[in-house]
Design a protein around this nucleic acid. Sequence first.
DNA 1: CATGAATGAGAGTTCATTCAT
DNA 2: GATGAATGAACTCTCATTCAT
Lengths: 194, 194, 194, 194
Amino acid sequence: MGEKSLQKKQYILETARKVFMEKGFKNVTMKDIVEACDISRGGLYLYFGSTEEIFLEVLKMEAGEADDVFSDNITEDATASDILMLFLKEQKRELLRKKNNLTVATYEYFFSTDVPKKDNILKKQFDSAVKIIEKLIEAGVENGEFECEDCRVTARNIMFVLEGLKITARTIGVSSDTVDEELMYILQGLGIDD
Amino acid sequence: MGEKSLQKKQYILETARKVFMEKGFKNVTMKDIVEACDISRGGLYLYFGSTEEIFLEVLKMEAGEADDVFSDNITEDATASDILMLFLKEQKRELLRKKNNLTVATYEYFFSTDVPKKDNILKKQFDSAVKIIEKLIEAGVENGEFECEDCRVTARNIMFVLEGLKITARTIGVSSDTVDEELMYILQGLGIDD
Amino acid sequence: MGEKSLQKKQYILETARKVFMEKGFKNVTMKDIVEACDISRGGLYLYFGSTEEIFLEVLKMEAGEADDVFSDNITEDATASDILMLFLKEQKRELLRKKNNLTVATYEYFFSTDVPKKDNILKKQFDSAVKIIEKLIEAGVENGEFECEDCRVTARNIMFVLEGLKITARTIGVSSDTVDEELMYILQGLGIDD
Amino acid sequence: MGEKSLQKKQYILETARKVFMEKGFKNVTMKDIVEACDISRGGLYLYFGSTEEIFLEVLKMEAGEADDVFSDNITEDATASDILMLFLKEQKRELLRKKNNLTVATYEYFFSTDVPKKDNILKKQFDSAVKIIEKLIEAGVENGEFECEDCRVTARNIMFVLEGLKITARTIGVSSDTVDEELMYILQGLGIDD
DNA sequence: CATGAATGAGAGTTCATTCAT
DNA sequence: GATGAATGAACTCTCATTCAT
């Protein structure tokens, strides 16, 4: 597959991404993607064999651009709580975004497929996020910003709350205020009286 | 609709419930339900017009049998923390159950339909659970079992963690130990050193 | 499947039979049969799942009407050679018939499918024909009409010649005269100077 | 077409031949051949316009290497029956060979195409084989090895039996023993008590 | 009420064939 | 000559939904 093909593949992935954001995973057909890309039926099959295949690659793309929240935007002299608050703020923004969001598609995908554990991208992302938060909290504890007994469990708790907010936002709806309250609650749990 | 019809409707709902537990929501077709019920295609349409309609009624049935956790099994002299722990234990059992569980179907249903807020059963259940937990915590605070600043926020936090565990269990998988750790963490947050 | 359905199934089989006679086996699609029957796409699938399935049933139908050559048309006082000649004449008629003939479809079908031996209808038909011819020859030998060393081998030889003529008729073409010559040759081999 | 092109054409034909042996005629697509040859789609079309075209040329190639059975392997002082038996033995070997054999493809090809008589390679091969066998039998009769009334008809009979065995081998299956019995039967018909 | 045959829309998938490079 | 991306036609198959009985 030459230079050009790669560009097209990329184009398909980006277009498909929008489709998945719009319609979730299960509702998307190969035809949908074909039409969104304005290419021929057969043309798509030249690059991908199924919506699963496409979605998985979209997810990989996404993952490649993730955890930039931690690496970007961070100044030299940022404190642990600065970084954590930045992260939570970003998460809030994400989870309140109505569309333009792969959350639903991702959940639907991982519902339907029995992904073997080790290949589960979602798990990798989750675990990686936990690890980063854990490190962050440890750092915060060391320089007296935070207090916590078991940083690993605390980090996981933060992630579970975020997951809970995420799924709730998609199924029930959550107000911006409710999210704020919950994020405060997390910070208070770390001994910060924001 | 006569007595007999009601019985049949009930029969369909109960059978469909099993199908939804088995296959989620999106994967279930009218055909699936027809076959599971062993009735005629046309017969099903006499009672329900779509899987959405059926699922919604299944959900209503479910709701009718819910929050029994709080009402059942509770002895006169149970403390607030006894009841809360019972509740959490029950939730753990639910979320670790692989099949026989409407979680996935429910999420899928609320992903796909743009349910108007006021009709959203899930929201009602969530809010009702929050309220009960809140009351429970308040009671616990009053008699010195718990300590907490804002009982409403704390109650919601518990629910979000539970939701987070639930969705994670279905997409990534959670170990029994991890669930335990998180439940402990919640209790510790209430000032209990279990 | 009720009375009516059986009639429709029969109708489909008879229509499909004509299609197979016209186009062989491999060239026939479900669409072809749908169109020939003038029913809906889904309608056909109600009865049959594939062209293989249909063809196999067509073949069974055909088999049910076979070896009537021996049972019909035979008068009380017919000699063995009378019957044999009648049989060969019938075979000649069959193999020279340009269309209206399932030969090609049958060969194509048995080329493409790896039919397990015991299920192979063609084999059953072949073996049954050999047996009948064998019996016939034995009868002829007993009353002095025929002479032959090994009736089984002779019977098989007749069948192989007929198969050879059949396949040749479909691929190269055979003239009526050539068939006659070969049938004579067979009879001469049995000691008849027709 | 230059030297190089001819080589490539030859290469394609040889590769395609293997594909036809493997899959018959009808199951072979241009894509199959492209892939087997590991050339480009467009590249194949520079040389051949369809699988029919390719197969026909494969068949011509084959024909060029045929009747070597008679020309090769034959010593000066071989008797007619030596040669005939050699031929039959070779035929047996061919028809019992499971794969590596163009029989099925050839039949399928001549089923599907309405080949004009004069172009029918198969007919040429058949007629040529008949002629050679006829000559052989005549020679055998002259020097007292064989006896037969009409050598032409006898020669054709041999060919039809062989065709019958061939097609039967591909559709029903034939045991080595059965083939032997039939070949013996042919020789006995020529007055040889092998 | 209940049945289940029938319809037809729509998704998936594969290839022959073309054509710009 | 050669490539291989691209197209679009053709098939397969499955269901939601209707309707005569």
